[in-house]
Design a protein around this nucleic acid. Sequence first.
DNA 1: GGAACGTCTTAAACTACGTTAGCTCATTCA
DNA 2: TGAATGAGCTAACGTAGTTTAAGACGTTCC
Lengths: 239, 239
Amino acid sequence: MPSTKLIARLQAVVGLSDDDRGKLANMPHAVRQFADDEHIFRQGDRTSRCAIVMSGFLFRQKIVGSRSQILSIYLPGDIPDLHTLHLSLMDHDLVSAGPSTVAFVSHSFLNSMLVSSPTLTHVLWRDTLVDAAIFREWVANVGSRDALSRVAHLFCELAARLELVGLMEDNGFIFPLTQEHLADACGLSKVHTNRIVQALRRGGLIEWQNHHVKLPRRKELAELAGFMPDYLHFSDNKL
Amino acid sequence: MPSTKLIARLQAVVGLSDDDRGKLANMPHAVRQFADDEHIFRQGDRTSRCAIVMSGFLFRQKIVGSRSQILSIYLPGDIPDLHTLHLSLMDHDLVSAGPSTVAFVSHSFLNSMLVSSPTLTHVLWRDTLVDAAIFREWVANVGSRDALSRVAHLFCELAARLELVGLMEDNGFIFPLTQEHLADACGLSKVHTNRIVQALRRGGLIEWQNHHVKLPRRKELAELAGFMPDYLHFSDNKL
DNA sequence: GGAACGTCTTAAACTACGTTAGCTCATTCA
DNA sequence: TGAATGAGCTAACGTAGTTTAAGACGTTCC
């Protein structure tokens, strides 16, 4: 079912009625596989459907001059283009990192679903607002932290979000990004990113091999990163 | 009227019925003045009302270690905390830059207004999504542009947004921020920000004195900044 | 009227990064 | 089987930025 992780995530944060869960579970959808580094959409595109990540990672990027800046990373259960319900013109690309599976649901269906449920309207609007809160933290991350805590912060955020959808096991998770992706997300060169990764390894704060990352000392990593998870709004329920 | 600039801005982008305009115009509200550098709210606060900027500038900030990072800047007609309708816990501060006037409208009134008008729900949700689009551009700005185009980009964005609410006159506008604010917004030191400002002055791209900024050669400035206004979604109407 | 303060400005020394280049290793594919 | 490719890694060097410090100027306030 495409919405299993989505429902798990929303449920964990706001609580949903049986009826609303049923609506989400029974959305008509089309499933598509993407290979590594395929574009789901590009800047300038318009779309009439939303993507739900089922497996793998996606990321948003903007091309700035000769650099590619990653703006955010999407995990199973996320809807990376929910904003297209109200803003049809893409101002960035959406790309797969590693092979991934995506379910597409039409705007027209989503709109009718929202009309029928004020709770779902609240929940999905809220979801776009958490997305925005994450962007804000990224502005702070890239604008104010040094390279070491910047990279550490990204790992902390991903770990927290993966935990929510049950994709963490023994403080480890599958991580399809390359060091170059990490560099693009943190606004660093890949050479320096490599230096930082080595430093984190030497400090015993991360283990990373074969697309698998482990964070054996998360508390210390969070301290180094200055990671405060309040901005993820996991326990900030208005209902 | 507190919502004059707000209505002007929404009207310019999506179009509103007389009825919806009336609802916005007649919102019950409380007006308050803020002096320079006063906090409207702080990280960790909860609120049950939204702020509409009537005059002056506000900005959001996060404290990261010993630095203060400005996350976004709000102009007359903006609702900087519209997200509190669905996310009550503040993950950042909202501060006035220079003296400013703010109108407060209760969440309960806004919610009842939204229930009564699907169009206004769309329009305000959309507004929070444009807010998010601006954050994305800021991630790209701070993460990928050098200091000169970074500062130039900020001026371009502010000029475009001020124009929309009729606060540009002859390519000039009132600018209550200091160079230190600019530094905090761009993730730069104030010393280097000063160097950049001088360079822009020498190039004839900005004039800045007594809280008044003029951009005599906006096209060249936009080119230098790599400014592409698509992310502001001024002409991307779904209705 | 002058003391205190904030903002802007400049200079000099320093450093956290970027750039370029070249190497290894594993994987893929003809 | 071995050529081509992509990811990771390392080193040497260059530079765009930071830091610290101190002076100029205008404004506010007693």
